[in-house]
Simulated scan of single mutants.
Amino acid sequence: MSKAFGARLHEAMATHGPLCAGIDPHRALVEAWGLTYDVAGLERFALTCVEAFAGRVAVVKPQSAFFEVFGSRGLVVLERVLAELREAGTLTILDAKRGDIGSTMAAYAQAYLGPDAVAPPDALTVSPYLGYESLRPAIDLAQQNGRGLFVLALTSNPEGAGVQHAVRDGESVAASIVHGARDDNAAARARGELGSIGLVIGATVGTAVTDLGLDLVEAATPVLAPGFGAQGGTVESLAATFGAAQGQVLASSSREILGAGPDPSRLAAQTERVLESLRG
């Protein structure tokens, strides 16, 4: 790709606004749409989302697990979703949270970020809890191929703080992740650009960013903030949580938008309402 992911994400957010629309076809939502919870229902649900979101939002985020439930047939649907969004010019983040060490991490990287990946997303979510450097194969491959990563840093689940706020040698685990991303974004930061190695920080983590002294502006990291809307994240909480870094934040909403289905025009209208709230 001619442009780094960070630069493409910045352009998409400037054009469409700071919203990432999720595609989460879990059983309750699929059935609420009046669809059967099988591969046919999965496909109808996912492609309706593609119709509603493509060209309207900066990023679309399919949740891999809800496709994997259906085995190889579900993955075929996921690959079609990613391919159709790419053809429409809409960026994608595959929410798969992969994380491992050595050759296994390298294989995950090739599967999702490599030049021969079957249906590569523009970015992938990854877990750093085997150590930030365990992600090195994915970090390097993403940057070589113009793709991005979003590294879990501060999650909103109650158990997360026990790990992410833990301190060793005067530095919290979350801070060590931010510093790793900062270092990998150094070249982009020197050019005054947004980096391609982003962070996942929940929209409902409250004062944790400030409490842990995380400088997201200096790190030049895009931030994926799940939990906006139905899960409690608000425009006010985004401002309070991220402060000066709010311009780097991509708010992610799934349930609040998907509850408007199954009609694609209603989904599109609800997406616009969420976008308007973010734009103020």
Rank of each mutant, 00 (worst) to 15 (best):
D116T: 14
Y37R: 13
A260I: 06
F67T: 02
G195F: 03
G114Q: 01
N157P: 05
G229E: 09
G243W: 12
P158I: 02
G22S: 03
T104I: 00
A219W: 04
A203L: 06
E276H: 11
G102K: 00
S103F: 09
E276F: 12
D38Y: 09
S127Q: 07
E79G: 14
A96K: 06
G41V: 12
E133C: 11
V205P: 00
V217Q: 12
I177C: 03
G259L: 08
L267S: 00
H26K: 13
R136S: 15
F53M: 08
G206Q: 03
C20R: 05
L152Q: 07
H10V: 14
F150W: 00
S64T: 11
A239M: 10
A175T: 13
H10G: 15
K97V: 02
R255Q: 08
R168E: 10
R255P: 01
V217L: 13
A175Y: 03
V57Q: 03
V39H: 04
R191S: 12
Q270A: 13
F53P: 00
D122K: 04
A260Y: 01
Q231W: 07
A46N: 00
A239H: 14
T271K: 02
E87C: 12
D95F: 08
G131Y: 06
D169C: 14
A58L: 05
Q110A: 15
Y129E: 04
L135N: 12
T210V: 13
E193T: 04
